[in-house]
């Protein structure tokens, strides 16, 4: 079965290659590499990935300028059609800045850049990104960010919780995120933003392979029932 993915690269992205390697390793198909200035995306895609990094040098706010780049219009319309969109780290920041996901990612409460393996709990194992996990499963995926402190007002947080849209939660306090939220889904369940880096946990040499399950889940979601 073919798996047609696109990895978007912004000036300053630095996890785009890791994302492409992880996708090819798990799906067996090399993803398209798309430049931020491209206004069009292929009609049929099984995944659009917004990678980690420091797009536009984190100028103004992390993800703010990437969220207004030409390709994001195409990403938004694809997301509206139901195409799965995965934003990791800076990609998550781009998704909140573009309004595809609610909330905002602020400077870590400690003010420190945090780079470490992070234990997480899978809160929703029914999405097309997480069906290979079990709800409540504890996994370890590395984080590496300065602006991962998830903020949303109480009403939004309650709605996210009530609708099962919190995908992952930190088990240890990490960055000051409201309710220890590490990753959230949009209302349609086809957009996932997360601060931890699943593409850095797909090979035993990475020190863990829990991230692999996320990519396998996306393959499962495509498989005919």
């Amino acid at each position: 079965m073919s798996f047609s993915a696109a990895v978007i690269t912004f000036p300053g992205s630095n996890c785009d290659r890791d994302m492409a390697v992880a996708l090819e390793t798990v799906t067996g198909h090399a993803p398209l590499r798309i430049w931020h200035g491209d206004a069009d995306l292929p009609e049929r895609l099984d995944l659009i990935a917004l990678p980690g990094g420091f797009s536009y040098g984190d100028y103004l706010r992390s993800g703010a300028l990437a969220a207004r780049s030409p390709v994001l219009k195409a990403v938004s319309s694809a997301a509206a059609r139901g195409v799965p969109v995965l934003g990791v780290c800076n990609g998550f920041q781009v998704l909140t800045e573009s309004g595809l996901l609610p909330g905002a990612l602020m400077r870590n409460e400690s003010m420190h850049f945090i780079c470490r393996d992070m234990p997480l709990r899978v809160e929703n194992a029914e999405s097309s990104f997480t069906n290979g996990f079990v709800t409540g499963q504890e996994i370890t995926i590395p984080v590496a960010h300065h602006d991962g402190n998830f903020f949303a007002n109480e009403e939004t947080l309650d709605r996210l919780e009530g609708e099962g849209r919190v995908a992952f939660r930190y088990l240890d306090s990490c960055n000051g995120s409201r309710r220890d939220i590490a990753g959230i889904l949009n209302a349609g369940g086809n957009v996932l933003g997360m601060m931890p880096h699943p593409e850095r946990a797909v090979d035993a040499a990475h020190g863990g392979t829990d991230g692999r399950i996320l990519f396998e889940s996306m393959l499962n979601a495509l498989a005919p029932a």
């Binding site: 703010a64 207004r68 800045e97």
Partner: peptide, 9 residues
Amino acid sequence: RKLLANTVI
């Protein structure tokens, strides 16, 4: 509203 401020925060 569109760029200079993130009105969420």
